[in-house]
Design a protein around this nucleic acid. Sequence first.
DNA 1: CGGAAGTCGATAGACGGCTAATGTCTTCAG
DNA 2: CTGAAGACATTAGCCGTCTATCGACTTCCG
Lengths: 143, 143
Amino acid sequence: MPEFLDLHGRTSKALRAAADAGMRRHGLHLGQNLLLAALWERDGRTPGEIAAALDVTTPTVVKMATRMATAGLLTRARDERDQRLVRLWLTDAGRALREPVEAERRLLEERVTAGLTPDERRRLLSALAEVHRATAALLAEQV
Amino acid sequence: MPEFLDLHGRTSKALRAAADAGMRRHGLHLGQNLLLAALWERDGRTPGEIAAALDVTTPTVVKMATRMATAGLLTRARDERDQRLVRLWLTDAGRALREPVEAERRLLEERVTAGLTPDERRRLLSALAEVHRATAALLAEQV
DNA sequence: CGGAAGTCGATAGACGGCTAATGTCTTCAG
DNA sequence: CTGAAGACATTAGCCGTCTATCGACTTCCG
């Protein structure tokens, strides 16, 4: 069992659980904060645009949007000029979550990296970026 | 958007996709290799034991085991002495995957970390371990 | 202008993951 | 020895994610 893959996997699972717990405090499910973030940055985006921004497939965004619309976080509306497009718009409830959710996220980042020196943190980010680059290249090559 | 969480999330997603592609070559779905690994190490374990080893809940193992039994990778059998227990046993097909799957896994690890010097790799592992430790502590404290 | 090709979102269905509820078998205390 | 408590696996149902398919709307070319 390769050690990097194993350790990364376990860390990933733990971070996921911690992020989930944090978001749950604001009534969100894991991942919904990312969709909201895309709309906080620019409201009225289409599912396809958001999917590309989050590096996720369109059906994933569609499903999440359906649940989040039910939860009153956003609304769906077809684009006036191009009826193929759908645009997602934040509700007041969706907008109101921005500050608390972003703060929660920053707090989590701080806490999990608190044990690293600034230099270690910098090296971690750079090494992780390299792994990400290599992995993306690997995926691209085996089309 | 905190940079470590963001980068880690993206790397995680890329690694997941790459691992999935690798396992698919052997007819496995992502994660099934981990369940198999638990049985390769010691055959005849129970769902609960495996769940603990993989740091996953029991229902997750039960579902995976059901699919993998259908796929002919393992069989279910109740323990003779304690009828509450179920033991999972590898089939020949499940055993035969060990070498190729472990090789695939090692190859992936090598390729994604190929761009790092031994020192960088060592520091990455140590930093990741620290993040994992801090995250686990965070989760434990908010019971 | 009208049909073919292209662009989107929505749906279907599979998988891994979780929590909560169910059911069955052991164990243990009275 | 019998009933309550405990230990397991399983089922149900939700969420995020993917691929494959469908359906509706635009666009563009002959």
